[in-house]
């Protein structure tokens, strides 16, 4: 059984195809980067970032297998939050690697290590490896730029944080590629520090991605209010829904939280009305599928007031 709402099944299938394509094309990037890496610290950091950029795609594909599954006795609420868990794991890994690379690049810079980029033999000709590195980095700019551009609108329609982070990471990827090119050109012009400085910039970009993803994942784990995809602000459609619910049940306390890509609402202190409105009507002009459950908690419900 497919438990996904009818309205997003097409986009969901497209997102899965895009993530498989990402795995393929980014693997070609990783391969050319690995072959031409040489002694450049910036290339090393860019390669690690490219490998890490596979993580959100893999996370999405794993979560996509679980999300449509039926609830079980052990997981009675289903698996809609699998991607939140996978997302948190990926964010922690990203942060750790970003931190490590920053330390390593800063050390290389402080130790004033001069990167050696020697010539290599290609089809009987001696070619400075730096030019091959720049070609590989050029490929690492083109691929994520195109993939990221295609994925972003799909992620917005699906309200999918993993896919959205993936699209943003691909933006970071091609910026990394440009930084790497600047580093290699720096070596060409005799500025030994350019390579480590580019590596430091790349490491910072990885760390920033990791920290921002951790913030988004933590908000959902703490049953936070639904957030915008690209910031920690409360989502505009959640605010509109909150206003509508407060208008309908002014005597109650409206609480909304995010569960995967969905919104779950509770009206505290109100008896379940006899004439319930339809979920679709409550969302107004916003996508109706987002609101999956609205429950009423009467004033006499058993609860500990000091916990919530």
């Amino acid at each position: 059984m497919n438990r996904l709402p009818e309205q997003i099944r097409g986009d969901f299938a497209r997102a899965k195809r895009l993530e498989w394509q990402t795995l393929f094309w980014m693997s070609t990037v990783v391969a050319v980067m690995f072959v031409t890496m040489g002694g450049s610290q910036a290339m090393r950091s860019a390669l690690i970032e490219d490998v890490l950029s596979l993580v959100p795609a893999i996370t999405f594909l794993i979560a996509a297998r679980f999300e449509p599954k039926d609830p079980t006795r052990k997981y009675p609420f289903g698996f809609v939050r699998v991607n939140s868990l996978a997302f948190l794991v990926a964010a922690v890994a990203l942060t750790a690697v970003g931190g490590f690379l920053m330390y390593e690049s800063a050390l290389t810079l402080l130790m004033a290590e001069h990167p050696t980029v020697a010539p290599v033999e290609v089809f009987g000709h001696s070619v400075w490896l730096g030019w091959l590195m720049i070609a590989a980095l050029g490929w690492s700019v083109v691929v994520p730029m195109i993939l990221g551009r295609i994925k972003l609108p799909v992620a917005e329609r699906l309200r999918d944080k993993v896919l959205h982070t993936d699209a943003l990471m691909q933006k970071a990827d091609w910026q990394t590629g440009l930084a790497g090119i600047a580093g290699i050109l720096g070596i060409y012009f005799g500025y030994w520090w350019a390579d480590s400085a580019a590596a430091l910039f790349i490491a910072f970009s990885i760390l920033r991605d990791g920290l921002s993803s951790m913030g988004i994942a933590a908000a959902e784990l703490l049953d936070g209010a639904p957030r915008e995809l690209d910031s920690s602000d409360i989502a505009a459609e959640a605010q509109r829904l909150q206003s509508r619910l407060e208008e309908l049940w002014p005597q109650g306390e409206v609480r909304l939280r995010e569960s995967g890509r969905y919104i779950v609402g509770t009206i505290e202190g109100v008896h379940s009305p006899a004439d319930l409105p339809k979920l679709d009507e409550l969302m107004g002009d916003d996508p109706a599928w987002r609101l999956v459950r609205l429950s009423f908690s009467p004033p006499e419900a058993l609860r500990r007031e000091d916990v919530g």
Binding site: I134, G138, V141, M145, G148, R149, L152, P153, L168, K171, A172, L178, I181, L185, R208, D209, S212, D230, S231
Partner: peptide
């Protein structure tokens, strides 16, 4: 990062110019 879709297009001109310069 807060980037919207069209932001991916903006640097395209810069990248093409950079590619020509590097080549």
């Amino acid at each position: 990062m807060g980037t919207k879709g069209n932001a991916f297009l903006r640097p395209a001109g810069t990248i093409v110019s950079a590619a020509i310069l590097i080549a």
